[in-house]
Amino acid sequence: MHSSFSPSRIWTLAMATVTQLLRMKIMAFLLVFCVIVVAAGFAFPVMNPEQQLKLLKDVSFGALQLFSIVMAVCATALLLPRDLEDRTLYTILAKPVPRHEYLLGKLLGVLVLIGAGLILMDLAFSGVLWLRQSLVLAQSVNALQQEGTATPEAIAQLQAFVGKQGLTWNLHLGVAAIFFKAAVVTALTLMISCFASSTLFTIVISFLVTLIGHGQGLIREYFLTGHAGAVKKGLSALLAIITPDMGAFDIVDNVINGQAVTLTAFGFMATTAGTYLLGYAVVSHLLFVEKEL
């Protein structure tokens, strides 16, 4: 009996996807990211130390989000059309590979790539932040010593203060939230590319839905709690139903500010992301399983 779900086949397809995407010079983006992070870390020495650390975190997390979303949309949108154009899809599907495995392989490949990219960028960013925070601390302690107020308590207080603004485990949970959002966008884009007629269409629609998704929370609350006419309510309901709530993963702003990510909060985000992933994967399968190639 032929197995219709083979993790090793899916993994083979995922790894082929990763190498395929890596050949598109994605490493260059990581290099650009490092330059941006270093620049943000050291470019504005006039500001107060706390604000400097915040700016470094803001810019780095901004770049992380941009990287993950752009990768999720553009890389995913390219995959199916390219395989179809190159006819590699024919040779793959002419092997005993169920179509859902092919889709899962592609999805997993993009997720592995985004995940690895985020980990690398997180490492680079953490390194710069740690360096910057050590410098800030050294400068502040130095200033205290010159004022003659460098008591052990004062230094300890300063260390605690800078430590809270600097590198914490919590920040990595913020990166995880960015990954969750990117995973949803990837699954969404894959679903759109299963019925789209061109790569450009896929990219435009995916970005559009992602953008609307960031306002979905507002739309949903308007529908659930607002007082409006039937037409407005119907429209907002439709938008709220067909778009995912991307805003539910936007915790980085407050994580940067030192707000702790609780286990429950993490669980909520993981569940939400998992629900979208599963749902979009099922829809993708339904669209792809009988697609004419």
Partner: peptide, 24 residues
């Protein structure tokens, strides 16, 4: 569409919780 309707309460709960935790 089914997913869209089923996810609404989950999204609402997630948002509420994250707001309470001052994460959103």
């Amino acid at each position: 569409l089914g997913l869209g309707i089923a996810k609404l309460p989950l999204e609402q709960a997630c948002t509420q919780h994250l707001r309470q935790a001052k994460l959103l």
